[in-house]
Design a protein around this nucleic acid. Structure first.
Length: 409
DNA sequence: TCTGGGGTCCTAGGACCC
DNA sequence: TCTGGGGTCCTAGGACCC
């Protein structure tokens, strides 16, 4: 029995979910992103059950009226015709297509549909690896019918069932491994299926741009281009020694394998989180001294939110970190590992504050973030040692607070 | 008119230990 | 008195992905 791995990717996921609510937008350029703004509030008051589909087109917010720092998370295929794409600034997108309809992100709704389509897949094929809200890998190898026609029959069944039960389309690729399945799922998007066998490598994979390999980003691609390597086929002609020389042991060896379609990674059903974080970009750049109160409130709010997230997911962590981005977009991070685990907002706030003191604060800031890493499952009863250490820390924090009160954070 | 938010993994240097 | 070598943990930055 040969290994058959599928990659399933929902088509324009956020936008497609919005089109289910507002079918009158079908075929129009629609863009999702930007966070919630006053204009959305006015619009959303019209949103009551059974009325959504009747909202007239001129009532929808337009890209042209947007002012802010948001980016596009998803664009409908109609919007992509204008050159609009994911991660593009909304202000820039507005220049390309001012009449496009702009909807705020409704993550709770997308998560509902995400759970729904994943449950449907699990009913059919139980070995599924979640890769974010709109993508999964599925191990077809031992699923009944998973080998028929290279996986096409099972892929069609999943695609059809997902559509029947959610109204959403998706694209699948089935291949000998995750690397090739991921590339295959893009070949016939949207609402497509592509089947790849080992023998297809020269005809179907090698003509593709190196950037299509999941893991080759803008930087690596640019470097390859500089050496005249544009396609995966050209990459496959590079010697192992040369690649290691250029990209280092690990990346070099990985590139060598990837170009040959070699990938032995397993489909992983569950994984433990490594870190939990919250960050926010301000509406305007803030200064540590001039906007101290505002910044302090945001900072505390982020710590509290991270603490809530940790508690909701029942994790504790011992590495507290901050991230900030200056007005020139340069980012810095600081973090500190404690000798105990915590999910307590005040403790996080204290140590994040210590991190903040180690960073230059003359320049204006555009972003602030708080992270807790080195996570561990919260025990039903905390260990005695942890409790004692946390208690000592709280006592020290109280003393420290009196001493350092006059400082910035 | 620049450029979100939530993650993972890798690298490289230094501390520290045996 | 010129200097090993491995292992682990920590920190900061960066590439990359969804």
């Amino acid at each position: 029995m040969i290994r058959r791995i599928a990659h399933l990717d929902m088509d324009a996921f956020y936008a497609s979910v919005e089109l289910l609510r507002y079918p009158q937008l079908k075929g129009l350029p629609v863009v999702i992103g930007g966070g919630r703004r006053p204009v959305d509030e006015a619009f959303l008051t019209m949103n009551s059950e059974g009325f959504l589909a009747k909202i007239p087109l001129d009532a929808f917010p337009r890209l042209a009226s947007y002012t802010g720092r948001g980016v596009i998370t998803t664009a409908t295929y109609a919007a992509r015709q204008f050159g609009i794409g994911s991660a593009m600034g909304l202000m820039k997108a507005a220049k390309l297509c001012p009449q496009a309809i702009l909807l705020p992100v409704d993550f709770a709704e997308y998560r509902r549909y995400s759970c729904a389509f994943k449950d449907i897949i699990l009913e059919i094929a139980p070995l599924m690896e979640s890769r974010g809200v709109d993508e999964v890998y599925i191990d077809f190898t031992e699923v009944p019918g998973g080998q028929r026609d290279g996986g096409r029959v099972l892929a069609r069944l999943i695609q059809k069932t997902v559509f029947q039960q959610t109204g959403l389309t998706c694209s699948l690729g089935v291949a000998p491994n995750k690397l090739l399945a991921k590339m295959a799922s893009e070949l016939n998007k949207p609402n497509g299926i592509a089947i790849i066998f080992e023998d297809d490598l020269p005809t179907k994979i090698w003509p593709l741009a190196c950037r299509k390999i999941n893991g080759i980003g803008p930087k690596a691609d640019e470097k390859l281009q500089r050496h005249g390597i544009h396609t995966i086929g050209e990459l496959a002609q590079c010697g192992l020694d040369w690649l290691i020389d250029q990209f280092g042991q690990k990346t070099g060896a990985w590139l060598f394998d990837a170009a040959r379609g070699i990938d032995t990674r397993a489909v992983v059903l569950e994984s433990e989180p490594v870190s939990i974080s919250r960050e926010t970009t301000f509406e305007r750049d803030l200064h540590a001294v001039h906007d101290r109160a505002e910044l302090g409130a945001i900072f505390t709010g982020l710590c509290e939110q991270v603490a809530r997230d940790l508690n909701a997911k029942r994790y504790v962590g011992k590495t507290i970190g901050i991230k900030l981005r200056y007005d020139n977009f340069k980012s810095v991070t600081r973090n500190q590992t404690l000798n105990f685990f915590t999910a307590d907002a005040a403790t996080i706030r204290h140590w994040a504050g210590q991190c903040l003191k180690r960073v230059p604060l003359q320049q204006r800031l555009r972003l602030l973030g708080v992270k807790v890493g080195s996570l561990q499952r919260a025990e039903p009863h905390e260990s005695k040692k942890n409790k004692a250490l946390a208690h000592i820390d709280q006592a020290l924090t109280a003393i420290n607070f009196e001493v350092t009160e006059p400082q910035l954070f």
